[in-house]
Design a binder for these strands. Structure first.
Lengths: 163, 163
DNA sequence: CTAATCTCAGCAGAACTGAAATTG
DNA sequence: CCAATTTCAGTTTTGCTGAGATTA
């Protein structure tokens, strides 16, 4: 009675397994899972990292600017800043120059936290790329970078949407 | 000052742009968009293709078997089969051997439809990979294939997490 | 009685929309 | 009056869970 319920990626038809778009999708899913697991173990998620990283690289910024720099939707950023501020990893203060804005500033604890998350992310990347040699990793990153760059700014159809 | 959403990928911090996991994520998002657009123009989506392709490659099957072969959740497959059956691209008949099951069969129209969708998908892959040479495409597919193969054998209860 | 199959109703989370409140 | 910013409430989409009905 037991049907071939044994599962596994190899159960998929060849035409599905070999489609580049599907390979990308699956590889991306694994990457997301690894990153989410690593960060989750430290009670963080990718948006925490993105926000802290943008603050370290560009300095204090309004939420609108952060939204543009991280790709996090203006609406969801509110919750992210709430969480970071609750742990005193960032400070949210009204902008004296334009009082519609908040200025978000990285604290010392936030910078330490960022470095911790960078470490966890590096672990996830290492796990993700573990089957590849150093040369192959560079190849992959190069090829992906070209794909993303090509489609990021006005592809064949139109564009300017990247998310 | 800025328009609401002017973010190109280049607005992102370097640490985010260069992360392999993020590159995968973005490349995958572009791939998904291209595929969805192509198939959407023909009023189809990826599950339709996956189902028709699995039926052509493995022949008639129960919904449970199809679910295993396509990665479509048993619950969502019901709706997919409904849609395909409504257009007479597949036939759903009770299995005379085990009456708990339905046997799903590809019709002649379904096979024609599959070939149409294959064509649209090929177009999407071509757009997706357009910045790469033939050799580079093979490299990319090879590298992605190894990543996916490596991570497909380890997760707990794995299997249906990909698409 | 237990297990597999199909089906449906609803949940969970992630990204987005719309609008109110405030300020420029 | 119009535009930008922050915030919140609610919608949409997507994959999944749980349970009921049927049959083995």
């Amino acid at each position: 009675m037991t049907t071939e319920e044994d599962q596994g990626a190899s159960a998929l038809p060849a035409c599905l397994r070999e489609l580049p778009s599907r390979l990308l999708s699956q590889a991306s899913a694994h990457a997301t899972r690894l990153v989410t697991e690593e960060l989750g173990a430290a009670d963080a998620h990718k948006w925490h990292y993105a926000t802290l990283a943008a603050l370290e690289e560009f300095g204090p910024a309004s939420q609108a600017a952060l939204s543009g720099r991280t790709g996090i939707h203006r609406s969801d950023l509110v919750a992210v800043i709430n969480e970071l501020a609750a742990r005193e990893l960032v400070e949210r203060t009204p902008d004296p120059v334009d009082r519609r804005r908040n200025v978000i500033t990285l604290t010392a604890a936030g910078r330490r936290r960022l470095h911790k998350l960078e470490q966890l992310l590096a672990t996830a990347q290492e796990e993700l790329l573990s089957p590849l040699s150093e040369t192959e990793r560079e190849q992959l990153v190069g090829l992906l970078g070209r794909l993303v760059a090509h489609h990021a700014h006005g592809g064949p159809t139109m564009g300017a949407d990247d998310r």
